[in-house]
Each structure stands twice: as C-alpha cells, then as structure tokens.
Simulated scan of single mutants.
Amino acid sequence: MRVNFILNPPKNIKDRIYNGLKAFNLQHFPEADIQSLACIAEDDEGHFLGGLTGEIFTNTLFVEFLWLDETNRSAGTGRKLMETIEQEAKNHGVTHLYLDTYTFQAPGFYAKLGFEEVGRYTGFPTAGIDKIFLQKKID
C-alpha cells in the first residue's frame, strides 16, 4: 500500500472521494430527493441585490450561501430573504434550518432571527476567526 499526500489534487480525485462518501452516506438516509433552491432580491428596476442558496432534504433546509451587495446590508433585505425562505420551507415540510457563518460575518444577525449556536471551530480557517454552526427549529 502507498499513501500519497497531494496538494491541489485534480478534480477527478476529489470527485472519487466525494462520490464514494456520498454513496456510503445515502445508505443511512431516507430515500428522498435533495432539492436545490435560491431566494433572490432585486430592486424595482430588476437589479440584483443579493440572495441565498440552499438545499432541502426531507425535513431540513441548509442555507449554503447568503450574500447581499454592500448597499443592502443592514437595510432589512437579509431579514426579508430569511423570512421568505422560512415560510417557503414550512410549505415544503421543513422543520429545521441549518447554516454556518464566520465570526466576521453575521452571527448576531442570525441570533436575532432565532438561530442557536450548536458548535464552533475556533481559529478556523485562520487565527482570530471562528466558524460557527447554527440551527433553528421552525413551527
């Protein structure tokens, strides 16, 4: 047996590992499709202001990315996006929302929306920054 350490591995190596893990994991999950989603904000002229992406799997929704252009931060746009996704999630049978954020991003924003911290990597991805894992039960 050989073990090789590879910096910046080619995509096919990463895909083989990911697909092998995914096949193993799916044996332990209920049979259900993963639904990809996006929720976007536009101004009255149709200019893109930002949005979020995520995935619904059975009764859970994971928010992958949320981004707003600088002029729309602290303007209520993020709250509106999250309120919209929560309502739509309920309509799809979702009972729990999950996401992660960094200490320099918006942990206080998510706390105001009712998210609770359930875990944290300290000093990740570098000293002085933490990655925070959050969840929220919705009714």
Rank of each mutant, 00 (worst) to 15 (best):
R120S: 12
D139A: 02
I6T: 12
M82F: 05
N59Y: 10
F29Y: 15
S74A: 04
H92P: 09
Q27V: 11
D33T: 14
S36D: 13
L49S: 08
I132H: 03
I138R: 02
D15G: 08
F65H: 12
Q35K: 13
L21R: 07
E83M: 01
E45G: 06
R73W: 04
L37A: 11
T122F: 09
I40M: 11
E116D: 08
L134I: 05
K137C: 04
P10Q: 09
G78F: 05
N4D: 11
E45W: 02
G46A: 11
D139G: 02
D15E: 07
F124V: 10
A41H: 03
I56R: 15
F65L: 15
D15P: 03
T84H: 05
L26V: 11
G46F: 08
D33E: 15
M1K: 13
L81E: 02
V63R: 10
Q27D: 15
Q135D: 07
P10M: 01
F29D: 13
P30C: 05
T60W: 14
G20V: 02
D139P: 06
H28S: 14
A127Q: 07
V3T: 15
Y102Q: 07
G119L: 04
K136D: 03
K22G: 02
N72I: 02
G119Q: 01
L21V: 06
H92K: 11
G123M: 03
I17H: 00
I40V: 15
A106D: 05
F29R: 14
K112M: 09
A111C: 00
K90D: 04
R73A: 05
V3W: 12
R79P: 02
F104Q: 01
F48Y: 14
E64A: 07
G114C: 10
A41D: 03
F109N: 04
N91M: 07
E42W: 03
L7E: 15
